[in-house]
Design a protein around this nucleic acid. Structure first.
Lengths: 150, 150
DNA sequence: TTTGAAAAACTTATTAC
DNA sequence: GTAATAAGTTTTTCAAA
């Protein structure tokens, strides 16, 4: 479905969404219009899902990061509803459903401990689908490049 | 440092890096040149760290996702060196240093179980700084929007 | 730091192959 | 799917406030 040229294009734009068509065309040695055609096609097919601006969280004082492990209560569709609820909590950017002793890993960002407690942990406690939770504070983000996949 | 207009601009472009200046200028009710000036300023100051293309990992068959918990051996600068080593492993996009029983949480993406074993786990095993590891397979990514912070 | 206008750069549309 | 050109947009520059 994707050939080498597509991959080369993706590799170029994944870290620089505004990289000019002209330069891409030089690097892949195809005319601008062809590169444009291929990019549009990948957008339509869902290979390219969007173009994001990477904003430094620290600039907004979002320096209180946490990872929370969640075990859901055993029951019918607890996982389904709980996953959705977790994804909607303010500050939460990552919700992963995993196989094992824990059911969910949630990664979230807050301004400070108070916001974490009031906007997040307080709400977790009131969710009936949750059996237990365990939160760790992230002391340092060493790497965070989810969209760098090539 | 950032005023309401800056925040409004960031909010618009965080999910659409290619949103035209003209439309932004209409929405914040300031001329294009002013909006351009502010964006450039935020780029220089590091508030805006880049523009990424969101590529669907499934399009590249990167559907084997894992979360690995790592405990480092007790020692001098094990954490520092280990953190760097983990960040360089292929497939790894998230490395978080946490406070608690575990030292690192690593999130990575592979094509299949074999690539995970050969390119990742095999290498972990050979790192002398590691005390023990525990890996969970992510059954479902419910949310993953690290750069959506506004 | 803001602004408007002009220039430069970039993207899209069109057509043909 | 590729390619060339033309048309249309968007971004950048710049002098002035």
């Amino acid at each position: 479905m994707l050939d080498d040229v597509d991959l080369k294009i993706l590799k170029i734009i994944q870290n620089d969404a505004k990289y000019p068509l002209e330069k891409i065309s030089q690097e892949v040695k195809l005319p601008k219009s062809t590169v444009a055609y291929r990019i549009k096609k990948m957008e339509k097919e869902g290979v390219i899902k969007g173009y994001y601006t990477h904003i430094d969280p620290s600039a907004l004082n979002l320096d209180y990061l946490v990872v929370t492990m969640i075990k859901a209560k055993y029951g019918q569709n607890y996982h389904e509803t709980l996953g959705k609820k977790l994804a909607q909590l303010p500050g939460v950017w990552g919700v992963y459903f995993i196989l094992g002793d824990i059911d969910f890993i949630v990664i979230a960002r807050f301004k400070n401990r108070e916001e974490f407690l009031n906007n997040f942990l307080e709400k977790l406690i009131n969710m009936p689908e949750i059996e237990r939770t365990s939160t760790s504070v992230i002391a340092k983000t060493i790497k965070e490049t989810p969209f760098q996949i090539l």
